[in-house]
C-alpha cells in the first residue's frame, strides 16, 4: 500500500469501515511510515477534539429538567403530530372538485356486503393528500413513504420507485403525482396518487394479516367491485400485501391502468 492510498483510506480506517485485509495493509504501512502515522494521528485527534467539544460546549447541553421530563412521555402518550405533506395545488383543486361533486354521497357508509379490506382501501384516500378527512378533521397519520418504510412497513420501499412516474397504458399514460403513507380504518397504506384520464386515481397497498394463497399471487387475477361511486380493483396479494386501484372511473375505464400497474407493482412486491 502506498502513502497516497493510506491518506485516502485513513478516515475509513479510523471509523472501522475497512475490510479486514485492507485494515491489515494499513497497519503494516503505518508501522514503517512516520509521515502517514502522524497524518492518521492528526485525524484521530481531530475526531476526538470534535467529540469532546460537543460534550463540553455549554450551549449544546440540555436542561436537566428537560431530560428528566422526557420520562413523562410514557404517561402523556400524546397524539402524533404529523407534518403535512406538500400537496400540489392542482391536486388540492382536483380533490376539492371531487369532494363537491360527491357531496350527495355519504362516503363512509359503504354497503355492508363489501369486504372490510376493500372498504378501507376505498376509504377517503382521495382526500388524504389534503391532510384532512371527509368529515373535515385533520388526518394525523399521513407521512412520507420513506418514513413509513423506516418505522412501519419496510416492504413499502418498493413503492418509492415502482410504478415509474409515468405509466403507459393503451388509453394513454398515467402520471404519478404523489406518494405517501396514510392510515384508514386502523390500517396503514402506501398510497400513490396518479393522474389518469383527467382524474385522480389511487393505488393503495396494505399489509394483510393472513398469508396470501399462492395461486392468487401467481395468477394476478383482477377482481373488480363497486363501492358507492368508486370502482375498486384488487390486483392480488403478493407477499402478503393487498394491492388495489381505486377511482371514480367506470370499471371498463379503470381496467387498462389496473392491468398496466398489475405487472409492475405486483411483480415487484412478490419478490419481497
Amino acid at each position: 500500500m502506498e502513502c497516497r492510498e493510506v491518506r485516502e483510506l485513513s478516515d475509513s480506517f479510523l471509523t472501522g469501515e475497512l475490510q479486514t485485509e485492507t485494515n491489515h495493509a494499513m497497519l503494516h504501512h503505518l508501522e514503517g511510515c512516520p509521515a502517514c502515522r502522524a497524518e492518521v494521528e492528526g485525524r484521530r485527534a481531530l475526531r476526538g477534539a470534535l467529540r469532546g467539544a460537543f460534550e463540553r460546549a455549554p450551549h449544546l447541553q440540555p436542561r436537566p429538567e428537560f431530560i428528566a421530563g422526557l420520562a413523562r412521555i410514557r404517561d402523556t402518550a400524546p397524539a402524533r403530530q404529523r407534518s403535512r405533506l406538500h400537496v400540489p395545488r392542482w391536486l388540492a383543486i382536483a380533490a376539492t372538485v371531487a369532494l363537491i361533486t360527491m357531496g350527495g354521497y355519504r362516503i363512509f357508509e359503504v354497503r355492508l356486503s363489501a369486504d372490510p379490506l376493500q372498504r378501507a382501501a376505498a376509504g377517503d384516500h382521495r382526500y388524504c393528500a389534503l391532510g384532512m378527512t371527509t368529515d373535515g378533521k385533520e388526518a394525523t397519520e399521513i407521512m412520507s413513504l420513506s418514513e413509513a418504510v423506516s418505522h412501519y412497513e419496510s416492504g413499502f420501499h418498493v413503492l418509492e420507485a415502482v410504478p415509474a412516474d409515468e405509466i403507459p397504458t393503451p388509453a394513454g399514460p398515467a402520471r404519478v403525482m404523489n406518494r405517501h403513507s396514510c392510515v384508514f380504518d386502523g390500517r396503514r397504506f402506501a398510497h400513490i396518487i396518479l393522474q389518469y384520464r383527467g382524474t385522480p386515481v389511487s393505488l393503495v397497498v396494505t399489509r394483510t394479516a393472513e398469508a396470501s394463497p399462492a395461486g392468487e399471487t401467481a395468477a394476478h387475477a383482477l377482481k373488480t367491485s363497486r363501492l358507492n361511486d368508486l370502482t375498486v380493483i384488487s390486483l392480488g396479494v403478493p407477499s402478503g400485501y393487498s394491492v388495489f386501484v381505486v377511482g371514480g372511473l367506470s370499471a371498463a375505464d379503470l381496467t387498462p391502468l389496473a392491468n398496466a400497474l398489475s405487472d409492475k407493482v405486483v411483480g415487484s412486491l412478490a419478490k419481497l
Binding site: F54, E55, A57, H59, L60, Q61, P62, F66, I67, L70
Partner: peptide
C-alpha cells in the same frame, strides 16, 4: 437523550 439533544441543538 443527552447526546440526541446536543445533536439537535
Amino acid at each position: 437523550a443527552d447526546r440526541l439533544f446536543r445533536l439537535a441543538m
